[in-house]
């Protein structure tokens, strides 16, 4: 091991973390730190908790299930269910672990349903990513988690085959499975540039979510991201996600460098995190 290089790398990483927290504290965010070890009680596991167990490290100790933190927003949602957080916005940093992956997350949460406040937080994070971490976002994807909840019935929404076909935008598979008159098939059959307007015009229930997507798309286009698109067929990872969901990518990356969105648990909130790996951190 070349200690001279390694020493500097470790110092740079710790400095970046300190700098992130300091920057957001200066912007008025309160700072939060939580244990990396999370404890679940067998008799109070929620459906979301159960679903998350398939991709995180867990082990049993007496009557509890212990796990290493796999996502900061999940940890904060659980914390807010249990304790009151007397603040409008927080920032945090720390590692998260899912199977075979270790990431560092720098993130923030805004406990407000005001869209301008949420978009201001998003811009704070985006500015930090570009100016301090020197990462250029080339693609931004906007989804709205209530769209599919309105287009699919409860059974369809839970059906693994439907979820798989949606994830792959497999139109002929969905047509065979759901029929060509199904609203999802009709919407996906439209040319991509027309889908938002088709959704708004043909399905009155979708007017609200579509207008929200357009509002967020305009906010992102102001940040000069080369490709901003709306993916109308994304499925929520957790049931507490209620509205807009955003993913930002740098060039040629499969995994998003920033993820986040609106959620409701127990009150409306918005959060985003920068996901850093060895390649970017």
């Amino acid at each position: 091991m070349l200690f001279e290089q390694n020493n500097q790398h470790i110092l740079d990483k710790k400095h970046q973390e300190w700098e992130f927290l300091h920057h957001f504290h200066h912007l008025g965010y309160d700072l939060l730190d939580l244990s990396i070890l999370e404890e679940f009680r067998w008799d109070s596991l929620s459906p979301d908790d159960l679903k998350s167990m398939t991709n995180r490290y867990t082990w049993q100790a007496n009557d509890s299930l212990l796990s290493i933190r796999s996502d900061w927003t999940d940890a904060i949602v659980r914390y807010r269910k249990k304790y009151k957080l007397k603040t409008d916005k927080i920032a945090y940093s720390g590692p998260v672990y899912s199977y075979n992956k270790e990431r560092m997350q720098f993130g923030m949460e805004t406990f407000s349903e005001d869209i301008d406040t949420q978009q201001k937080s998003m811009k704070d994070l985006l500015d930090y990513l570009q100016t301090h971490l020197k990462q250029t976002v080339s693609v931004a994807v906007i989804s709205h988690y209530s769209l599919l909840k309105k287009l699919l019935n409860k059974d369809e929404l839970q059906d693994p085959e439907v979820r798989h076909l949606l994830r792959e935008r497999n139109l002929d598979g969905l047509t065979k499975y759901l029929g060509d008159t199904h609203p999802v098939v009709q919407l996906m059959s439209q040319p991509v540039p027309d889908q938002l307007h088709f959704a708004r015009d043909q399905f009155p229930d979708l007017k609200g979510p579509v207008n929200e997507i357009i509002n967020w798309r305009n906010a992102l286009e102001e940040k000069n991201i080369p490709t901003v698109y709306s993916d109308l067929f994304s499925l929520p990872a957790q049931s507490y996600y209620k509205g807009i969901f955003l993913q930002f990518y740098t060039d040629q990356t499969v995994e998003p460098i920033v993820t986040g969105g609106q959620y409701s648990s127990p009150t409306k909130a918005f959060g985003m995190a920068i996901n850093l790996t060895d390649l970017t951190y």
Binding site: V139, P191, V192, P226, T227, Y229, Y249
Partner: peptide, 12 residues
């Protein structure tokens, strides 16, 4: 996933 949107007219 991204090219589907960023090069949509060519792909279509």
């Amino acid at each position: 996933k991204h090219a589907f949107f960023s090069k949509n007219s060519e792909i279509q």
